[in-house]
Every structure is written in C-alpha cells, then in structure tokens.
C-alpha cells in the first residue's frame, strides 16, 4: 500500500468542524466517546495491518534488490503512524474501560439506594399497621372500614389523573386519618349518646393529635395533612382550622368524601347502615358545601361504573374469608 494513498484516504475523511462546546472541567465521557469514535475511523484508515505488510515486503525487497534508500522516509513515516494509531487505540480503550467501571459503580450505588429506600418504606408501612392495630382496637372501627376508605381514596385519586406513586401514597396515608383517636378517652369515643359541646371539643382534638403522632418524616407528610384536615369542609365550616377550598390538601379532600361515605353506609352502635344509593345521594348533596365538587363528581363517576359496589363486595369477601379461616 502506497503511503500517498493512505494520505489521500485520510484527507477525504470528513471530520465535522462543528464539535460541541467542550466542558470546562475534566474531559467528559462524551469527549471520550467522540475520541474513540474518531480514532477508530482514523486507525481504520491508517490501516496498520497494511502498513506492516508493506514494510515486510520492503524488507524482502531490500534483501533481494539491495535498494532501501528511496523508500526509507515513507517506511519511517508508516512505522510512526502505526505506533501512533496503536497508542491512540490503547489510550481510548483504557478511557472506555474507566468510564464503564464508573458507570457500573454508579449503577451499584443506585441499586443500593433503591434497596435502602424500599427497606425504609417497608419499615414505615409496618409502623403504620401497628399504629392502626392500636387505634382500631380502641375505636372499634373495623379494619374493613379502613380498607374500604383506602380503596375509595385510591380509586378517586386515580380517576382524578394522579400519577401511580401518588395514588399509592394517598392510599396508605388515608388509613391513618383517625390515629389521633388513641388519645381520646374511651367514654367519649364509645358514647352512644349525643355528645355535649365539651365532649365534642375533645373529639376534635384527634385531628391535631394525629398530625403530631405522625412525627416529621417525609414518609408521613401526606398522612399528617390527612389526619389534620379530614374534618375540614370545602365551605370553611369544618374543624380544627376552618380551612376552605384549596387550602385543604387534595388528599384530605378525597379522604373526607371516602370516610363519610363509608361511615354512612356502615352500621354503627347508634345507627343502621344506609344503602349505597342513600349514601351517594348525601355525598352529592354535600358537593360545594362539605366536599370538593370535583372529588364528589369523581366519586359519583366511579359509583356509576360500579367501582364503589365492587370495592364493597371485595372487602366483604376478604373479611369473611379471614373470619372463616380464623374460626377453624
């Protein structure tokens, strides 16, 4: 191979002059990739293999003919180019290896963080279930009530178009709306009579108590809002703060609808269970007064599609299943 050919070939290579602006710090991985890409092209064109062959031929030629002088310069240049191309290839391969190792390390670190996060989440959820166990034993609220509220909340949140991770967070946060009732004296909580104003003031404290119990971890942020605000009303006539409209967190506005609907349609010591139709009618009446109209219309939509009935049936089925197995 004539070295002039190599030159011509290399000269025809189009190297775009419009390289991206270089970063000011150390050479970035992008630069490495560019370098490697380009070097592979140049190395290809320099065709080290062809050069070695040419030099081997030259050696034979020299030995046979005794003329080397005229090729001396070209041969030296070819030898240099071959070394140069090899050096580039080695350097770039090393850079690529380093970059790959760094990426693997990064991936490992990310994976570890994911595991740690998952562990934290599990710890949080476990804490919730202990908290709830305590609260339900005291309040005589059933686990079924909490499960139905959770399912309603998730369904409403999903229908409102919230992203899946938020739907889940609203769901697990909703079950803690009444944890503050642990502090409420039994005689008031379990009273079957009409409460006096003083007694009702004590009941109201479960919202702020619940918020306090849920600490300051990010995991319970939504839950704290729900605990404090689930008795607030859209028209501002609720408690404990008298917030109205958007001042109340969306999660709390959703829980409010789900909680009231389930309370109405469940049997309590002082009342029978309402039918789903009657419960839904009451909720619709409350739109714009007690409840956020958008949340209500989402809930009504779910009900029309049969989602509310389905949740009620599914929860009833799992609970009778559990009762059945524990009876054995």
């Amino acid at each position: 191979m004539n070295p002039d050919d190599t030159k011509k070939m290399v000269e025809t290579v189009d190297v775009s002059p419009a390289m991206p602006e270089a970063p000011s710090g150390a050479a970035s991985p992008d630069v490495f990739r560019q370098l490697l890409h380009q070097a592979v092209r140049v190395a290809d064109l320099s065709n080290a293999q062809a050069m070695r062959m040419a030099m081997d031929f030259a050696k034979v030629y020299e030995r046979e003919q005794g003329v080397r002088k005229e090729f001396e310069l070209q041969l030296r240049q070819m030898a240099l180019m071959e070394k140069q191309a090899t050096r580039y290839a080695e350097d770039l391969a090393q850079m690529l290896r380093t970059e790959r190792e760094r990426r693997h390390e990064l991936e490992r670190a990310l994976e570890q963080e994911r595991i740690a996060n998952e562990e934290l989440r599990r710890t949080g959820l476990q804490g919730i279930s202990h908290l709830l166990l305590a609260a339900t034993i005291k309040d005589r609220t059933t686990g079924d009530h909490l499960l139905r509220v959770r399912r309603y909340v998730e369904a409403i949140a999903e229908r409102l178009g919230l992203p899946a991770d938020l739907v889940e967070e609203f769901g697990y946060s909703s079950v803690m709306h009444d944890v503050g009732k642990i502090h409420t004296p039994d005689h008031i909580l379990q009273s079957e009579h009409h409460l006096s104003d003083d007694e009702f003031d004590v009941i109201k404290k479960h919202c702020t108590d619940g918020e306090k119990m849920l600490g300051d971890a990010r995991f319970f942020e939504i839950a704290r809002g729900i605990a404090r605000e689930h008795h607030e009303r859209w028209d501002g006539k609720g408690y404990p703060d008298g917030k109205k409209g958007d001042e109340i967190s969306l999660a709390a506005r959703i829980v409010s609808v789900a909680d009231v609907f389930d309370a109405l349609t469940s049997k309590r010591p002082y009342k029978d269970a309402w039918s789903a139709e009657a419960g839904l009618e009451a909720i619709e009446k409350g739109a714009g007064e007690r409840f956020d109209p958008e949340v209500v219309s989402a809930f009504v939509g779910l009900s029309r599609e049969g989602a509310v009935d389905r949740i009620r049936q599914e929860v009833a089925a799992t609970s009778s299943e559990q009762n059945g197995s524990s009876a054995k």
């Binding site: 290399v10 190297v15 270089a22 370098l35």
Partner: peptide, 17 residues
Amino acid sequence: LVPIRQMVRITLSTQGW
C-alpha cells in the same frame, strides 16, 4: 503527515479549540 494533523485536530477540537 496528514494523519497526524488529523488526529491532533480531532483530539483538540473535542475541547472546543
């Protein structure tokens, strides 16, 4: 040598020079 100039140019133009 064209290939050397080529290599140098490619290498240095990655730095925006």
